[in-house]
Every structure is written in structure tokens, then in C-alpha cells.
């Protein structure tokens, strides 16, 4: 049985690697699809003298065939060398590392907030299906799904920072508590949208399990409410895990808007600036790194199913 699981994992890993390769090829190729002369684009705002253009062409090996350039870039990227930023001239790897902490803090906080609030909310809604509490939670989650992060962020900023003055308007603060204080509003902004999805999916998963025969049978055997709920939650765990794994992808989209709105110097803001500046090396690096992180989460989610659901283990073993 373990051997088959290993085979599955190797195949799954192989697929992920192929997918990432294809994606990186596309992202790298975008540089050549962008309008205008590549060398001029790569020069950025610098003076486009013939010497400068020649220098750029040599530096980026633009005279070589496309695939050669790509493999050259990829082999360096695999060692962590993503080249230098056109905009700042600094190594891309270092720029990303400097900003990683902030983004990780905001998204981690948002993830934590949304899971801690939304999973219980989804369970409660499912348990009270059709009642006012359920309708209120579902209504709230529809609004949460519909509200773009930047709009929610601006409204929160106006109400809690400008109006009430409870939270700082911009910036990151200094010291641990102050930093945390600065991150509350961005994290809440992200968590609202994220939590809405989690509420919806958790509610659906738990409600589906509550309709199952085994719940009626468990109740008929006199098992207490808490016990029955425990059984249901265990069975609803796989779809809820799936939704949480999907959320990780969503987080990266959302953090971009939150960082721009709250003027936080994180990876999202870096991506925005780099895209607007056509800072190709940074954009390529960021996109590929995010794709790797999301693929790894999906892989972890698959592993989690294996430990949670014996049926999946069994299907794989056959």
C-alpha cells in the first residue's frame, strides 16, 4: 500500500514540476510579447543610446535563440538568482526577501482570522439551516464574496482610521506590537473576503453531511449533540481542507490590493510597481515564486486527504 502511495506522490510531483515549467515558460515569454522593443523595455527610463541598447542586449543574451535564453534564466533562477531589477538595479532575490516578511505577516494573520471565525461560522450556519442566524451568515458571506478588497479596505480606513482614529492610516510601524497594530486593518480586509468563501464552503460541506443517514443512526443510538457534531466534522473535513487550500491562492491576489490600499511595502506592492514599470525580471521572479508556493499548498492538501480519508488511501492502493 505504501508503495502505491509513493508512486502516486512521485507522479503528482512530476505533474506539478511540468506544470510549473510550462507556466514559467509562458511568463518568461510575456517579455517578448509585450509591445515595443525588448531592449528598450529592459532599459527602462535610462537613456536609450545605441551603446546602452547593445549593452542590454549582451547582458540579457537577446542575440541568442529564445529557448536558450529561457533555459539560461531558468538555470539561474533555480539557484535563487533571478537577475537584477531594472527599476532599482538591486538583485531581485534580495528585494523579494526583504519584503517577504510583511506579506507573510499580513496573509498569515488574515488566514488565521478567517479560519478561526469562518469555519465555526459555517458550521453554525449549517446547524441552523433556514433560521435567521443562518440567513444572516449566508447574507453576510454573499456580501463578503462580492466586495473587492480595496473597496472594503478604503471603507475600513475611513471608518476606523480616519473617522474613529483607532488604527493608523498608513505605514508599518516599529516594534512588534505597533507593527501588529498597523497590520490589523489590512488583515481584516483580506480576512473578510477570504472568510466569506470559507463560510460558504464549510456550510455546504457540513450541511451535506448532516443530511446523511449515519447522522440519523447516530442520534437514534442516543449519542449526544457534541458527539454527533464531532462525527459530522470529521467527515466534512476533506471539502473544508480543499477550500482552505484554494484560499491560499486567493490570498496572493488579495494581498496585492490590500498592500496597495494600505501603502504597505510587501511583495504585492512590489509586483504592482514592477508591473507598472515593466520591470520584467522582478515580475517573472514573483510570478514563478507564487506559482511554486500555490502548487506546494495543493500538494500538501492532497497529502492531508491521504491522512484524513482512508477511502482515498485505498483507492490509490488499487
Amino acid at each position: 500500500m505504501t508503495r502505491q502511495i509513493l508512486v502516486f506522490l512521485v507522479r503528482r510531483l512530476g505533474m506539478t514540476v511540468l506544470l510549473l515549467l510550462a507556466l514559467s515558460l509562458l511568463v518568461y515569454g510575456l517579455m517578448f510579447l509585450a509591445p515595443g522593443d525588448i531592449a528598450r523595455n529592459l532599459l527602462g527610463t535610462r537613456n536609450a543610446t545605441p551603446q546602452a541598447l547593445d549593452q542590454v542586449r549582451a547582458q540579457y543574451h537577446l542575440d541568442k535563440p529564445f529557448l536558450w535564453q529561457y533555459t539560461h534564466w531558468l538555470s539561474h533562477a533555480l539557484t535563487g538568482d533571478f537577475g537584477t531589477s531594472i527599476r532599482t538595479g538591486a538583485p531581485v532575490g534580495r528585494m523579494m526577501r526583504e519584503r517577504l516578511g510583511l506579506t507573510a505577516a499580513v496573509s498569515g494573520l488574515a488566514f488565521l482570522l478567517s479560519v478561526l471565525a469562518a469555519v465555526p461560522a459555517g458550521v453554525v450556519a449549517a446547524l441552523h439551516r433556514g433560521e435567521w442566524l443562518d440567513r444572516a451568515l449566508v447574507g453576510w458571506s454573499v456580501v463578503g464574496i462580492s466586495a473587492p478588497g480595496f473597496a472594503v479596505g478604503l471603507i475600513l480606513l475611513y471608518v476606523f482610521a480616519v473617522g474613529l482614529g483607532w488604527f493608523p492610516v498608513y505605514g508599518t510601524g516599529s516594534g512588534f506590537l505597533d507593527s501588529l497594530w498597523h497590520l490589523v486593518l489590512p488583515a481584516v480586509t483580506l480576512a473578510l473576503g477570504l472568510g466569506a468563501f470559507v463560510v460558504k464552503l464549510t456550510r455546504a460541506a457540513v450541511a451535506r453531511e448532516l443530511d446523511e443517514d449515519y447522522v440519523v443512526f447516530a442520534r437514534s443510538r442516543g449519542l449526544g449533540r457534541a458527539r454527533v457534531l464531532g462525527i459530522v466534522l470529521r467527515n466534512a473535513a476533506v471539502p473544508v481542507l480543499t477550500s482552505l487550500a484554494l484560499m491560499v491562492g486567493y490570498l496572493f491576489g488579495g494581498t496585492l490590493l490590500a498592500e496597495v490600499t494600505f501603502a504597505l511595502p510587501g511583495l504585492g506592492a512590489l509586483l504592482e510597481q514592477s508591473v507598472l514599470f515593466k520591470d520584467f525580471p522582478v515580475v517573472q521572479a514573483l510570478t514563478v515564486v507564487v506559482a511554486v508556493l500555490i502548487s506546494l499548498t495543493a500538494l500538501l492538501a492532497d497529502l492531508a486527504y491521504l491522512t484524513v480519508d482512508p477511502r482515498i488511501r485505498n483507492r490509490m492502493a488499487r
Binding site: E212, V216, L223
Partner: peptide, 30 residues
């Protein structure tokens, strides 16, 4: 009353047991 005095045995054994719990655990709950 339920379980200790009246108990209902459902129709379909394919759906009446929790799919993710071991049989011994499920019997032991009561």
C-alpha cells in the same frame, strides 16, 4: 430513551455508518 431503550436500524448499510471512522470506534460510541 434513544439508544438505551429504543433504537432504529436504518435501511441502507452503505450510508448508515460514518465512512471515515473505524467500525470498532462507531460501535463504541454508545
Amino acid at each position: 430513551i434513544r439508544g438505551s431503550r429504543i433504537v432504529t436500524l436504518p435501511q441502507d448499510p452503505f450510508t448508515s455508518l460514518s465512512p471515515l471512522h473505524r467500525c470498532g470506534t462507531q460501535i463504541g460510541w454508545a
